[in-house]
Design a protein around this nucleic acid. Sequence first.
DNA 1: ATCATTTTTTAGATTCATCTAAATTTATAT
DNA 2: ATATAAATTTAGATGAATCTAAAAAATGAT
Lengths: 218, 218
Amino acid sequence: MLSRSEENYLKAIFHLRIEKNSAVSTTELAEHLNTKPSSVTDMLQRLNSNKWVDYRKYRGVILSRNGEQAALKIIRKHRLWEVFLVEHLNFSWDEVHEVAEQLEHIQSEQLTSSLDQFLNFPKYDPHGDPIPDATLQLSRRTKKLLSNFKRKECGVCIGVKDSSADFLKVLDRLSISLGSEIQIIDIEEFDQSMRIAVDGQQKYISTKIASNLYLNPI
Amino acid sequence: MLSRSEENYLKAIFHLRIEKNSAVSTTELAEHLNTKPSSVTDMLQRLNSNKWVDYRKYRGVILSRNGEQAALKIIRKHRLWEVFLVEHLNFSWDEVHEVAEQLEHIQSEQLTSSLDQFLNFPKYDPHGDPIPDATLQLSRRTKKLLSNFKRKECGVCIGVKDSSADFLKVLDRLSISLGSEIQIIDIEEFDQSMRIAVDGQQKYISTKIASNLYLNPI
DNA sequence: ATCATTTTTTAGATTCATCTAAATTTATAT
DNA sequence: ATATAAATTTAGATGAATCTAAAAAATGAT
């Protein structure tokens, strides 16, 4: 069985791999996990010899089939718990992450599947990220950063790229949440900042905000 | 902060202390925690130097004020999660323990108090054990083993002494659950086995069963 | 009160996950 | 192409939590 630490490594590799689409480097992992490159090397050697990852000295690491399945199981639990916390325990979307980081390590198939059922088999978590189903399949839908939209275009908010508490609080202040309908009214040539309508209400937003918000184009 | 292992020691000391009402010995702890006496000694020395327990060489251990509060917090979480699992995720009362053993270590005041509220501030868990409230106070009520009842006496089932899955399954088979009204019809002189009525239905039960079932006398 | 038995502690080793410092390999810039 | 910088790995150490084996203390039976 995987230790908690091994689980965290697999999850980190999974996430970094998606962001970059190439093998994940020791340093990246170390930064992501708040640890030192030398510790990462140690762990990668262990994970490699147990066939959870494919790791080559100096060349980075990718998940094996088993490692990917393991990572998906953890992500499934993480996101299901996030839904539970937000929908039933009144957590706000910037408060869930830390607790879900702990809950994702609970080992019980029965718990995971009952929770899934209790929540009515949700497909997306409170940040709009897809929840792997019981067979570990992920739903996919077109998502485009708001910053890539043009004047007059429209979309529904379906997720965030940066899910830091700071950013999520900004969105709360702008009354932007999952499902909000957003239309681009104008884009400032000078700095690419945008004037948008959120469910009809006009707002000004910076490029940084626009480049962290995912919309599903209408 | 306490490690998971330290938390388990404090909880074990708390439980064993209640059963015995005297200082808890190294060997008892080792048995309860499935570990070796020498490991227990090590841990007790650490817990002692951090003031979680009062431990004297060769004399056993009791919890300090802090240690007791810490133990109660863990027990509170354990029992709240048991209620959640049974009432909302359809776990049976013999399935909850193992999962609750994991969930009790999740660190989040907000989670504990929201869960408490979500469950409507339950006072007892699915085995009838009292749940410490937010101030860590335990409800108390008279409970008497069924084996100590006399002919004709009556009571309501409020808990079990042995909460092993095996015993709980026996109770399920006898349709005895928390809240069941039980009357002693007859006691066999020879072996103290009992004929009882459970919510009106007559059943035969062994002394061993009777001495593991708590009733609140009517 | 003494000795055998039981319990407990100490000493020393092991594994996991981490660290720092040094060595090595790869990448980059001229 | 080579030197310098950056990234990575290795070597050796540490602390938590455990173990086994040996030593020490407490208990209990005569």
